[in-house]
Design a protein around this nucleic acid. Structure first.
Length: 472
RNA sequence: GGCCCUAUCGUCUAACGGUUAGGACAUCGCCUUUUCAAGGCGGUAAUCAGAGUUCGAUUCUCUGUAGGGUCACCA
């Protein structure tokens, strides 16, 4: 028997930027589709013209592309189920709405918005859930499109259903109501539109946030009314904000994922981190490429409880991914943040192992910690002292080093040879630091710096000797 | 308030009745060492509470507690 092709989708509304929560939902849907050699669809749920934000679609597309989450069908590339903008699919919603009307399962809402608002307020005051169906009119008029079209829920019952992540779920009859299918502006609500789209697009698995658990009975009642089989639900646990209490959301200061891009995080680190926030491979691996995630991903290992975003661990993970980068990539990214006089290939590794994200390069530069590469450092002579060795002795050591280093040919002046020469002298002292510390300091003028050998190589023979001579 | 979901180190998590409760980040210490960084080794640190089921509960059940979600002409 041929198994049905797995189809997943990510269906954001164009109300602004994407934050990490949305990205993770997209990622899981993408991973599941790819793992099963299925299709991943990008659909834009633009049915709320009030909240729509200009440019959102482009922003969403840009975000997903940056992350390497690529869709097989979508508004920009089309596909067999086009169009992928809900605002262009109104005919479909009308068609299915008409089916419900014909079945006597949909009717025009006779009330004004204000009147419904009063019902709601009354319910809230009485500390009861608001149920429109308790105010359902006795008789229905004909829907002319000027009023909202509501679904007439026929069987008030508790629903039970199976979720791929949470297992068996249920909800009380309070979760069922005569919700709006088509708004008075002619656009469908999410509750209705996504069902029709998923049906028409052949979506088999719905990845979604757990805020949708409580509205699932509404969806199920529509599936029942339309006599169609619902797709499989995979509900994702929430991502919490830094306080660990609230679900991360735009109102709570969730960041645009593209902000992470401009802060110098790698997309592969973002993907890796998000994948592991609420899912684990079952073994102790933590660093993954996208391909490895596709391979390892499994819905059954998605967790149930909310996870807190953790900047510190994200920084660590980004660093891990930086370590995996080729020299060329390191160079390209690091050079972007370096001033012209510091675009020296040899300092790339020195910087790379000291940063966790690209913008750290900028910080290092601004702090002036790299200035010594092109500028004579200024420092106080006492700083050359190691432990309590007198300055005269230190100077003597440096002089010796200068004369030995001077014997090195210009083109042999590399860190290996420099190290050999200096160590020979240093090893004869009580403490290597008596020589190595002052040399490092004379070259860099910094309390913290890379080792003196590499610095000397980068500075070159002339500059190195000149700085050392100045120190004695 | 109704309905629903969740609960293991500070954080992310593993352990699908029997483990000295494992790993990672963070933290602390040690090693390496000329200072950082990197690396290596090690330490501190958790099963929300109370009943029950069981020879045996992190694991199953119930209650409580805490947190979260939801009850829109938003998705």
């Amino acid at each position: 028997m041929e198994s049905k092709k797995i189809v997943t989708r990510f269906a954001p509304s164009p109300t602004g930027f994407m934050h990490v929560g949305g990205v993770r939902t997209a990622l899981y849907a993408y991973l599941w589709a790819k793992k099963n050699k299925g299709a991943f669809i990008l659909r834009i749920e633009d049915t709320d013209k009030e909240r729509e934000v200009e440019g959102s679609i482009e922003h969403i597309i840009k975000s997903l592309k940056w992350l390497g989450i690529n869709w097989d069908e979508g508004p920009d590339i089309g596909g067999q189920n086009a169009p992928y903008l809900q605002s262009q699919r109104l005919d479909s919603y009308k068609k299915y709405a008409q089916i419900l009307i014909d079945k006597g399962l949909a009717y025009p809402d006779p009330y004004t918005e204000e009147e419904v608002g009063v019902f709601r307020d009354t319910a809230e005051l009485a500390k009861k859930p608001f149920l429109y169906r308790e105010h359902r009119p006795e008789t229905f008029g004909v829907w002319d499109g000027t009023k909202p079209l509501r679904f007439k829920v026929s069987e008030i019952k508790s629903y039970k259903w199976h979720d791929l992540v949470y297992g068996d779920l249920s909800a009380g009859p309070e979760a069922l109501d005569d919700f709006i299918l088509i708004k008075s502006d002619g656009y469908p609500t999410y509750n209705f539109a996504h069902i029709i789209d998923d049906l028409e697009m052949g979506v088999t698995h719905i990845m979604r946030g757990q805020e949708f658990i409580s509205s699932t009975p509404k969806f199920l009642s529509i599936y029942d009314a339309l006599d169609i089989k619902p797709p499989l639900f995979a509900t994702l646990p929430p991502i919490m904000g830094k306080d660990g209490k609230k679900k991360l959301g735009k109102r709570d200061g969730a960041k645009d994922v593209l902000d992470y891009k401009s802060e110098g995080y790698l997309p592969e680190a973002m993907i890796n981190f998000l994948a592991l926030l609420g899912w684990n491979p079952g073994d102790e691996r933590e660093i993954f490429t996208m391909d490895e995630l596709v391979e390892a991903f499994d819905i059954s290992r998605i967790g149930h409880s909310g996870a807190q975003w953790n900047d510190l661990k994200f920084d660590w993970m980004n660093k891990e991914h930086i370590k995996k980068l080729s020299f060329e990539k390191l160079k390209k990214n690091i050079f972007e943040y370096l001033p012209e006089n510091l675009k020296i290939e040899k300092i790339i590794p020195l910087i790379a192992e000291r940063i966790s994200k690209w913008s750290d390069v900028k910080e290092i530069v601004e702090k002036g910690d790299l200035d010594f590469f092109f500028k004579q450092p200024e420092y106080q002579k006492e700083k050359l002292v190691y432990k309590d060795i007198p300055l005269e002795k230190i100077s003597e050591n440096i002089k010796k080093a200068v004369s030995e280093l001077n014997n090195l040919e210009e083109n042999n002046f590399n860190q290996e040879n420099i190290k050999k020469v200096l160590m020979q002298i240093a090893d004869k002292l009580d403490n290597r630091g008596e020589l190595l510390h002052p040399i490092r300091y004379a070259l860099s003028g910094l309390d913290k710096s890379p080792d003196p050998f590499i610095i000397a190589e980068i500075l070159g023979k002339n500059e190195t000797l000149s700085r050392l001579q100045k120190a004695v």
